[in-house]
């Protein structure tokens, strides 16, 4: 049942080690681009790693009234799930002829586990600000899940299969999804949903530093905070790869494809960072209305266009 090679995949490449490094580098891109937008210099490339190491050396405080085991365990569960999602995506892209562990549906579901673990961790902290953050995270989750699923299903409808193998093969033969009208609309919807999934402005409502003082991770400190931050960094890395796989032909490692793959990735990250830096935070009810209103209508339009063959 278990080929030992999978453990190597999971721990080293393209699993934990690779994903963590790439995720932290992505957060550096985020910080650097944000700094440039705000006319600052920004941190050096190793800053996220230095932050991690510093946090690991700090004391961990579990506040009075918190449920200790759950409080500390949930971020770890989220980390494990995010790593698994990354591994499935990368293996499918590296060997496009085969499928691993699960298909699109599986990855969508596994990518919700980090959010669930954040919610349960905040709930276990027993901090009212954290609990408000948790309830907002949950509302945000079911708000963006609807348009995100419809957007991804436009691709699935055209391919006729949930498996990454078929999604990539279809795009290799008949052109990427972004080459069609429905694909572009679905991609735009998915970008906004990604923004919410990563808790980036204007959808950083569950964390809301200026209002909830970190919200769902207000009580985390030291190594536990490091794991939470790593979790977010990994998701920041996984979501763009997911979008590239579903809408933009995937990532390839032959010849000049390496360069275009990296460019695609950086392009999506920069789009996300630019949206983040040019929009103020919205309220949770505005966010829910945004995703169940305009985004839902756009995603349905994309689906209808896909059914009509555009």
């Amino acid at each position: 049942m278990l080929d030992p090679i999978y453990i190597v995949y999971y721990l080293i490449f393209p699993g934990f080690l690779f994903t963590a490094v790439a995720g932290l580098l992505t957060t550096w891109v985020d910080r650097k681009v944000s700094a440039r937008v705000q006319w600052r210099v920004g941190p050096p490339w190793f800053q996220p790693f230095a932050d991690m190491i510093k946090l690991l050396g700090k004391e961990v405080i579990v506040p009075v009234g918190a449920r200790r085991t759950g409080f500390l365990l949930w971020p770890v569960v989220g980390l494990a799930a995010a790593t698994l999602a990354s591994m499935i995506l990368w293996l499918s892209n590296l060997w496009p002829g085969t499928s691993f562990v699960g298909d699109t549906i599986v990855v969508i579901y596994i990518m919700t586990i980090p959010a669930i673990s954040m919610i349960l961790g905040a709930s276990a902290s027993s901090n009212p600000l954290g609990i408000v953050g948790a309830s907002r995270e949950m509302k945000l989750l079911f708000a963006y899940e609807l348009p995100l699923v419809i957007a991804v299903l436009t691709t699935i409808y055209k391919v006729g299969s949930f498996s990454f193998q078929a999604v990539l093969a279809h795009q290799a033969q008949e052109g990427v999804m972004l080459g069609s009208v429905s694909g572009v609309i679905a991609f735009i919807v998915a970008i906004f949903c990604t923004q919410a999934k990563l808790n980036l402005l204007p959808f950083d409502i569950p964390e809301a530093e200026t209002e909830l003082a970190g919200g769902s991770h207000i009580e985390y400190s030291g190594a536990a905070l490091a794991v939470v931050k790593l979790n977010m960094a990994i998701m920041f890395f996984v979501m763009p790869v997911f979008l590239i796989t579903v809408f933009w032909g995937g990532i390839a490692f032959t010849g000049w494809h390496i360069l275009t793959s990296i460019l695609k990735y950086v392009a999506i990250v920069v789009i996300l960072v630019l949206i983040k830096n040019t929009n103020p935070r919205v309220r949770i009810d505005q966010a829910v209305r945004f995703f169940w209103g305009p985004m839902f209508i756009l995603s349905v339009a994309a689906m209808v266009l896909a059914v009509l063959g555009y």
Binding site: M1, L2, Y6, I7, Y10, L11, F16, L56, L73, P75, V76, V77, L79, A80, A81, T83, L84, M87, S99, F100, V101, G102, D103, T104, I105, V106, I110, G160, S161, F162, S163, A166, A223, A226, V227
Partner: peptide, 23 residues
């Protein structure tokens, strides 16, 4: 149209949790 390998996924998630606990 798709596949799901729950056994492997579970083992990998458990390994991931162990990694976190090692951290």
């Amino acid at each position: 149209q798709g596949l799901w390998n729950p056994g492997l996924a579970t083992i990998l998630i458990i390994i991931g949790i162990i990694v976190g606990l090692v951290i």
